[in-house]
Simulated scan of single mutants.
Amino acid sequence: MISLGQPWILLLLPLPLLVRWLLPPHREQESALRFPFFRRMTEAAGAEPRAGAVILSRPVLSVITAALCWALLVLALARPERVGAPITIETAARDVVLAIDISGSMDARDFAAPDGSRKQRLAAVRDVVGDFVAGREGDRMALIVFGSAAYLQTPLTDDLQTVTELLGRTEVGMAGPHTALGDAIGLAIRTFESSEIDQRLLILLSDGSDTASRMSPINAAEIAADRGVEIYTIGVGDPDTTGENRVDLATLQAIAARTGGAYFFAEDEAALDAVYARIDELAPRETETLSFRPRRSLAWVPMGLAALLGLASLAYLSLRQRLRARGRAEAV
């Protein structure tokens, strides 16, 4: 479809006619000789005197060409453009950060797989989280891994394939043997600072208790709540185990409660898969839809036609004038 970006410009089309009708003709003064008894001289010569001032007429071709060129230039100023079919783009309306515990306790092989075999905790988490990430197409996600310290693996990005690949390369103990829940939340808060989106979701998975953070997880959760970060916590492992490997379910519950999120516990791979499915239900993918029509300017077409028409007219009139001058010279 072709449309005009500024159709009101077409009101300028009759402007040359208004100028012609309202403004007086252009006049030029030239030197002349005055003859006494001029009328008697013309009568003796048998000539009829004419008016001293005349309005020169233009060739019809010149008038038509000028009118067409003016119309084409006005059309170009009206910005003709080709409007394409509507294009819809979906952008993320929420940013998601995944914080995964890779402390030494994640090496335990006590996660039951669907076939009954026992899997390493981190391996089961990688499989389930990979499917979850793949289903968030259109969202921006970041990945944080933590042990004795928290590390940002990927900043907020819509390249979910990279997030999945980097998660697959993580190994138990890469970030140290201990668990720093509070530091992981603090790093997620700093990650969200680069986001201009108000809705922010942190999914925190851990199988231990906080033993290495510089800030307590509860205080970090309160700061996250003030910054508009909603935290979903997932506990894995054995809550009956003593020592550092015992998962601190009470802390995970308190973190989720302070930020308006939710707490889950998964004791096998099927339960973990169900947890992420439940998170998808509670926090469905939200997008903002932008729709626009691509526009391509066609102003060059009437401008080019006006230039070609003007040049062709000038060439024709110049050639005709030369031929007439040559004809007169030959007649003499």
Rank of each mutant, 00 (worst) to 15 (best):
L152Y: 02
L167T: 03
R39K: 08
S105E: 07
D107G: 12
L33W: 13
F265W: 06
A99V: 06
I255N: 02
A78P: 06
A184F: 08
A150E: 00
P294G: 02
A71K: 06
L319H: 13
S194R: 14
G173W: 03
Q153V: 13
D183W: 02
G237L: 04
A329V: 09
E230H: 10
P86N: 08
A266K: 03
H178P: 00
F292P: 06
R34E: 12
L98G: 03
R169M: 13
L249Y: 02
P14R: 06
G186F: 00
R136K: 05
I255M: 05
R58Q: 14
S291Q: 15
R82T: 07
P16D: 10
T287Q: 10
L73R: 04
A225F: 05
L201F: 04
G138I: 05
G261V: 02
P239F: 08
E81P: 00
L15I: 12
R20M: 12
G176N: 11
L309Y: 04
F192I: 03
P155R: 09
E330M: 01
D183E: 15
L309P: 05
F264R: 01
T179S: 12
V301F: 00
I87S: 12
I231R: 01
A283I: 02
V236Q: 03
D101P: 04
T157V: 11
F264Y: 15
D110E: 14
A180I: 07
A93V: 00
V275D: 00
H26Q: 14
S213N: 07
D115E: 11
G327L: 11
D238C: 09
E193F: 05
L143F: 06
R40I: 04
D95L: 07
A99M: 08
L13C: 08
Y151L: 13
A45E: 12
R109I: 09
V60E: 13
R295V: 08
A113H: 08
E165L: 15
F265Y: 12
F292I: 07
G130R: 05
G228L: 05
Q120M: 12
I87D: 06
L143T: 04
E222M: 12
A124G: 11
A66K: 09
R214W: 09
A67R: 10
D198L: 08
A124T: 01
S313F: 03
P59N: 14
R227F: 14
S62Q: 15
V163F: 06
E281T: 12
L152G: 11
R79H: 13
V63D: 11
L309W: 04
L75I: 12
W8E: 10
G5M: 03
M1T: 13
A44H: 13
L61A: 15
A277K: 14
I234S: 01
L201W: 00
A212G: 06
G228V: 04
P49Y: 05
S318Q: 10
D115Y: 08
L152E: 13
P155D: 11
R34P: 03
